[in-house]
């Protein structure tokens, strides 16, 4: 019972975090104009959240689907791809997720109130906020999408689950998965009892 609970908690925390992180990326990279963002509170710090209802709904649906897949432990990584107007990927923010080795609480490293985890997630968000110092600026008119790398079985399960909700996931196109002339920028890694996340960015050398 404990293990099941831990998986659920991990899935909840991680999906919430990814939702906030996606909003953060959209804000930091200027994908949408500043005006559509509003300030909300998460993990006791202010974060910028996109207030446009369609965008908000879309991101919520993405997070819900990711949560469903996380419950099965089938998510390998979640990628937020920012594409140029001609739909070539310019930047990829990759969240590498490792849900194996969910260790039970060691006496010295207990985090039953998840305070340390909250602190680490805050640090991750902070790192995202300052990421624009490491990346070259984006051209205007960019679009974005989310890729989830997972197992085939999980993908079919997800299709069945969400078939009625009018939110489908399709297989990603090949050319959107790879950045031309990529440069890797490692950003932050987080490890906790529940999961491990690594955040890095791939940037195309050929941004106009």
């Amino acid at each position: 019972m404990d293990a099941v609970k831990r998986v659920q908690v991990a899935a909840d925390v991680l999906s919430e975090f990814l939702e906030v992180a996606i909003h953060c990326i959209l804000h930091c990279r200027g994908v949408y104009p500043q005006g559509v963002f509003g300030r909300r509170k998460k993990y006791n710090v202010p974060v910028q959240v996109c207030l446009h209802p369609d965008v908000d709904q879309y991101i919520t649906n993405v997070a819900t689907s990711i949560r469903a897949m996380l419950l099965d432990g089938a998510v390998e990584r979640v990628v937020v791809v920012i594409t140029a107007p001609d739909s070539l990927p310019l930047e990829r923010f990759v969240f590498d997720i490792d849900q194996t080795n969910q260790t039970s609480n060691r006496p010295g490293r207990e985090d039953s109130y998840l305070l340390h985890l909250e602190q680490s997630l805050r640090a991750l968000l902070l790192k995202l906020n300052v990421s624009d110092a490491l990346l070259k600026p984006l051209p205007s008119g960019c679009s974005w999408t989310v890729h989830v790398h997972t197992k085939e079985s999980a993908a079919t399960k997800l299709e069945e689950r969400l078939a009625d909700k009018d939110f489908t996931w399709v297989e990603a196109e090949e050319d959107q998965q790879h950045v031309t002339d990529p440069q890797l920028i490692p950003m932050k890694s987080l490890s906790s009892n529940l999961f491990k996340v690594q955040l890095y960015a791939e940037e195309s050398g050929k941004k106009t």
Binding site: R39, V45, P46, Q48, L125, L126, N129, S131, D132, A133
Partner: peptide, 13 residues
Amino acid sequence: QRAQLKDSNALYM
């Protein structure tokens, strides 16, 4: 800092 700050969120964090 090196980053271009868009608002005070990061300072608070």
